[in-house]
Every structure is written in structure tokens, then in C-alpha cells.
Simulated assay, not measured.
Amino acid sequence: MNSYRWSAALLMMTLTVPTYTWAQGCNLSVGPGDVDFGQYNRTTLQPAAGRLALPIRHLNLNLVCEAEQNLTLVYRAAETSTQGFMLGRLGVYQLSVLQASVDGQPVQWAQLNTAQSLSSGTWVGVLKDDRALQPVRAGSVVRGRQLTAQVEISATLDVSVRDSKDAHTWQAHGAFEIAGQHREVHLRTGFAPAACRPALSDGGRVDFGRISQGQLNRETITSFSRQTALQVDCDAATRFALRAVDNRAGTVAARLPAPLPALFGIGRGHTGLPLGGFTVRLGAGTGRDGTTSSALSGDCAAQVWHQAPDMLLQHDGRLSAFKRVHSPGSLPGAWQGLSIPLTIDLHLAPARLLDLRQETPIDGSATLEIIYL
């Protein structure tokens, strides 16, 4: 009976943490003091579990004291939520203490409850609003002169950020407190709705010149080819796709040497019959970083992609995007700049079907749209 009481008393001594007066003669360093998660756009942040995860960041925390001290660690921030500490209006971040040691020996962390005693259950290393962590070893609170630890910072943004049409910067600050020392850290991240600007060589004009009657095949299709280029420049590395629109829909001649969704109209002759059609072939592009692109074909919802080198643009809603040649898989890459060679093939109907008694303009027109993925 006495032995049982003694054991219980010892357990209470082990798990009860008295309130200490903060000691002097210590030096605390936390670095880096400015934590920048970077700036992102709607294509560089992908949703997971209803949030947009930012890259993990780390801090190094070092405390050196002249004498042995209580090493209760607290982090205080101006704004908190049930998910952690607020990073601006739409962000949240959490702090986890990793790889900690006291006087050169590894320790775990336990959380103090409001009664200033160690919470029961497994050891944790997550700092919460005004809830202190205490270093423990073998179930006992540890005091010491020197503490080193790595602090992992994980942050997320609300998915509504992706719908923003304006640029934003979110900032937050907080402070670590331990052994009478106080060190602030500042955190920030930014969002910009990165814009991509497409430009076609010669302003998008492809001139086949004057085609004479003698250049046309009477019974078969006659084809001509020209080269041009599409340049896409973005404010930041951005995943994008191209969608084509046929501005002369319904004016494609029959039996042309390409699938109908890839044929764009060039207007009608004086008799009302279609003159032919043209196709746009995507070549291997070159990124601003010097890497080579390969074309991808995707469904209208941009959910399924497959490789389609040397592919034809299509105007049926399907998308065209670009991956780096040596990257694995078949998903579009993020490009800050990309130059894509285009081959324009003009196909004219057999001469016997055309009214060649007077000059007829070839009036093809297509629009290329940038779709952000």
C-alpha cells in the first residue's frame, strides 16, 4: 500500500510542471527571421483536400544559457484559427518542432494544458496558440542549458484564391518565447493571376500570295504550305493550353486530307461552293529556359492528356498543351515563355469544282485562345 502511494506521488512529480520565473543569461536565435513562401498563380497551386498547399519551409531555433533553465516553448501570433495560425485573410500555417535536442541529447515534446501539466497521450511537437511545449525524455520533463531544434512550417491557402483577378500579398508575424527570450518571425506569400500573352508572327497573317489556275490540279486536291510561329509569354511559369476556334465554320470542302475537326474553313467561291480548308500543325517548341516542348492533346475538360507530337490543332473543343520532352508522364508543363513553330497547310478543292473565271479571295480565319489549367 505504501509502495503504491509512493509511486503515485512520484508520477505526479514527473508530470506536474511548476511555473518558473523566466531566467536571464540566455541567448535565443531563430533563423531565418523572414519566411517567404514565394509568389504563385492559379496554375502553380493545385488543390488537395480542399486547400492549396504551399511549399514547406524550415526555421532553426537555437538557445544557449549560462545555467540550466526551464525550456518551456511558446509561439504567439496575432491571429489564429481552428486550423492553426492565420497567414493573412485566406491562409493558415502550422508549426511543428522537429529534431530537437537538449544539451546534445534528443528530446521529444509534450504539450502543456491549461492547468500547466503535461497532456496525457502521445508526445507531440505541434505548437498551438498560447499552448506551450515542454521537452521530455523518457517521460520526464527536461531542463538544460542548450536547446537546438528545427521548426517545420506548413502553410495552405483557401481554394478561392485561384478565382482572384487581382494580385495579393498575405503577411503574418509571430514570436517564439523560451527562457525569457523573445524572437519574432515574419511570414508572407503572394498570388498573382499570371497572364499569358500569345503573339503570332506577322500579326497572324499568313500570305499564300496569288495562286494561278495553272498551279491547281483539276481532279485532285492541291496543297500549299507556309511556316509561321506562335510565341506565348507569361508573367510567371504557367500551365496553359490552346483552344482553337474556326471563324469560317461550315465552309470546309469535302474529301480534304485531314480529319474534319482539324480543318478550318477558307470561305466560299462565287458559286457558293467551299474553296477548301487549312490545317495548323504544332511543331516542337522551345521554352525560354532552352528546353524543348512536345505537344499534348487533351479533352475539353482538360482532365485526360496524351502525347501527340506534330499534332494538328482542332476546333471541336479539344485542347492542345505542351510538356517538356524529357519530363515523365503526359501532363502539361508550366512555361514562362514558349515559342512554337506552326505549319499552315492550305488545301484547295479540285479545279473542276471551282469557278476560275474571276479572282477569288481565300479568306481563312481562326482564333487561338489561351486556357489556364
Rank of each mutant, 00 (worst) to 15 (best):
G38I: 11
N217T: 03
Q24R: 15
Q83V: 02
E177W: 01
I370R: 02
E369T: 06
E369W: 01
V141S: 10
W123S: 15
A77T: 11
R51A: 15
N2K: 10
T16M: 09
W335G: 04
S294P: 09
F37V: 09
G84W: 04
E184H: 11
F224M: 08
G298Y: 06
H173A: 14
L296K: 03
D202R: 13
N2E: 12
R324S: 13
V161T: 15
K128M: 10
D310M: 11
M311Q: 14
S3H: 13
G190P: 13
L353M: 14
L282E: 01
R210D: 12
R197W: 07
F208P: 05
T16W: 12
D345N: 15
R255P: 04
Q83M: 04
D34A: 14
S365L: 13
G121V: 06
A194T: 10
V245M: 04
L338P: 05
E68Q: 15
I370A: 09
Q24L: 15
G298T: 00
Y75F: 15
L54M: 01
T286R: 13
H173V: 11
I340P: 05
F85P: 10
A179G: 01
H173G: 11
W6L: 13
A244L: 09
G214K: 03
T343N: 06
S223C: 02
R268F: 11
G204R: 04
R281G: 02
P257E: 09
S154V: 06
E184P: 09
A262P: 11
L260Y: 00
T271M: 07
L90Y: 11
Q314P: 01
R42M: 14
F176P: 00
P106S: 08
G214E: 10
L313I: 01
